[in-house]
Design a protein around this nucleic acid. Structure first.
Length: 636
DNA sequence: TTAGGGTTAG
């Protein structure tokens, strides 16, 4: 049997087996996130009540009875181990059963390495470990990401003849996967082809997914002799974690077609995919499944739903869910703050943040990405400055690139360009090209040609393959009507052999996702869409609209520029939306890039002349167009 | 005797 070789063999066997004195626990071991909810078990108060009755009945010295209580505690979701330990210590001669359950209590607590110390003392007191002992010990090592200790447990398990037990081996595959030793997991998996069960396969599937080997995971998933709900959930979350969202949803579809039972993990992953893609209809379908299958609205599921509705443009639905969540954790608050921020509801986001603090929660870096993003999108400059200070000084959170990004965006767009430059100069981490590009965008808004040119040139050196920088710099020149410079930058762009990133927009209609790129003529209803575009053109011209072509980089005539704008992907999606939705229905569009100035203007006019609410999620935020106005108040 | 391993994102 394969055994991982630890860096230094700190563990050898106890005296009756070998000796155990050298068993050391790595103090640097990190804890993995807490385990999620488990099936209903006797609660801690119930166990305590039973314990009290045992004492009153004079049975406190009955070791098997106390051992059973300990077993109940070990089965409960993660609890502090002090009570379990007091029970365990009341047993005069703890059996292997009692000790195993205490090891399990430690493994599930916030101090999993304690279980290794107990194992060490178990060996000294000559209680012989069994296969259960090793399963729990390996679980503790996995949770603590304690590779070295886990490898030692592996060695002992093999020496004592427990290496062949399928539970032990599965726990080992999981341990090495948790500690990023995928090759070790793979060897254990391959060495025992004849004695695998579904958990063995699932553990290996998880290992491939965590190592971002989606191809290998897909192959394994295909080969599996049996797939249970966890196999499917793992595959779906694998797709979602690796950004292969459509494939995640397709896998979910197949899972349902096979009549598989769903569980919380499946639903959370699928909600995340729906949210990231902005597919409201799909997200709603998942929500209705949650309700029809009577899934309890756990913190995870509730938070995933709040996030989905926020990312699909229904911030009111998110707010309602948030209000009605019986239990919230820090992530519930974080997604609510970030959701409000993305919809430009800065003041509401700050109010929620204040409630979060008042309820005694401690903010983390993501909380401040939401808070600073809220200030940035709503133009709340002094609040942004105050919260940035609060984050660094009161909560000692080291600002990351995203925090600086929010600040530079906020200051830059509000016209505080010098302050933004000063902030960048004071950064503890080197600014990335995205940050400079943010400032460049601000230079464009404020017509700051000199600074913009300086940053643009810097960007072209830093990141010459990114077409967006050329486009931005050329737009600055275009705004200043410096056409020769526009042509020069455009030539540079061509010489660098980069292409402008293709913008796309998508819209859902009757359960189908329709994706458009600029000038798209592939859609089966293309003719009707272009007719609708013409109709839109006439109606908006009647209301006094004239095109703003400053965002068009191409060195082409004015008429052609107008046409290029007219066929932007979001225009096609909007035209399609007007075709397929009923009068008065809201049109929802998801766009990968930021919406251009002209399309923004046109969307406002369409919302008025066609009497439609249009919600666009662009690469940066939400725009709610209604009655000729946008929720961003033209500040984006 | 009793118990055990694998899936969740924001």
């Amino acid at each position: 049997m394969f055994a991982y070789k630890p860096k230094s063999l700190l563990l050898s066997l106890p005296k009756h087996i070998s000796n155990s004195q050298n068993f050391l626990v790595n103090s640097n071991s990190q804890l993995s996130p807490p385990l999620s909810s488990l099936p209903p078990r006797p609660s801690i108060p119930q166990t305590k009540q039973a314990h009290a009755q045992i004492i009153v009945s004079g049975l406190a010295a009955d070791s098997p009875l106390i051992s059973h209580l300990l077993c109940f505690l070990a089965l409960s979701p993660s609890t502090p181990f002090h009570y379990s330990l007091s029970l365990y210590q009341s047993i005069k001669y703890p059996s292997v059963f009692a000790t195993n359950n205490m090891i399990r209590c430690f493994a599930k607590s916030d101090s999993p390495p304690q279980s290794l110390l107990l194992f060490s003392s178990m060996l000294r007191t000559c209680v012989k470990p069994n296969n259960h002992t090793f399963t729990f010990l390996l679980q503790a090592c996995s949770r603590a990401l304690a590779l070295n200790e886990g490898a030692q447990v592996h060695t002992v398990a093999v020496k004592l003849g427990f290496g062949g037990y399928v539970f032990v081996r599965n726990a080992l595959i999981h341990l090495y996967c948790s500690c990023s030793r995928i090759e070790c997991s793979k060897r254990l998996f391959e060495e025992n082809a004849s004695s695998r069960d579904v958990v063995t396969w699932n553990s290996m599937l998880t290992a491939f997914v965590r190592d971002e080997q989606i191809g290998a995971a897909e192959k394994l998933f295909e080969e599996m002799p049996e797939r249970d709900v966890i196999s499917w959930s793992t595959m779906i979350s694998g797709y979602v974690q690796n950004g292969r969202l459509e494939e995640g949803l397709e896998c979910f579809k197949q899972m349902r077609e096979k009549g598989m039972r769903l569980n919380e993990a499946t639903l959370v992953s699928v909600l995340s995919a729906s949210a990231q893609l902005g597919l409201l209809e799909h997200g709603r379908l998942v929500h209705s499944l949650v309700e029809s299958l009577n899934f309890p609205l756990t913190v995870s599921l509730g938070t995933a739903l709040i996030d989905m509705y926020a990312k699909c443009g229904c911030i009111e639905q998110s707010k309602l869910l948030f209000k009605n969540m019986p239990k919230k954790d820090i992530w519930t608050w974080n997604v609510m703050i970030c959701g409000l921020a993305s919809h430009g509801l800065g003041k509401e986001a700050l109010a929620i943040f204040q409630r979060f603090i008042d309820e005694g929660f401690h903010p983390v870096n993501v909380t401040f990405i939401g808070v600073l993003g809220a200030c940035s999108r709503a133009g709340l400059v002094s609040e942004g400055r105050r919260h940035f200070k609060l984050m660094t000084e009161k909560y000692s959170i080291l600002p990351e690139m995203e925090h600086y990004g929010c600040m530079v965006d906020m200051l830059g767009r509000a016209g505080f360009l010098d302050e933004a430059v000063q902030l960048i100069e004071k950064m503890t981490v080197p600014p990335d090209p995205v940050l400079w590009a943010t400032l460049l965008g601000a230079c464009k808004i404020h017509g700051s040609i000199e600074l913009g040119e300086k940053i643009g040139k810097k960007l072209l050196k830093l990141d010459p393959t990114h077409d967006g920088h050329y486009v931005q710099l050329a737009s600055i020149y275009a705004k200043a009507r410096k056409w020769e410079d526009v042509i020069r930058v455009r030539r540079l762009l061509v010489e660098q052999n980069t292409n402008k990133a293709a913008g796309w927009s998508l819209i859902e209609a009757q359960g189908t996702v329709h994706k458009f790129v600029a000038g798209d003529r592939e859609h089966e209803r293309s003719l009707e869409i272009y007719k609708m575009l013409e109709k839109i053109g006439i109606r908006i011209a009647e209301s006094g609209y004239s095109p703003n072509v400053s965002s068009v980089l191409h060195d082409i005539g004015e008429e052609e520029k107008e046409n290029a704008i007219k066929e932007h992907s979001e225009r096609l999606a909007m035209a399609f939306g007007l075709l397929v939705t009923g009068a008065g229905d809201c049109i929802r569009i998801v766009k990968n890039l930021r919406v251009c100035e002209d399309c923004h203007e046109v969307s406002k006019i369409i919302s008025k002349v066609f009497e439609r609410e249009i919600i666009v999620r662009d690469g940066s935020r939400f725009h709610h167009f209604k009655d000729g106005k946008c929720s961003c108040l033209d500040y984006w």
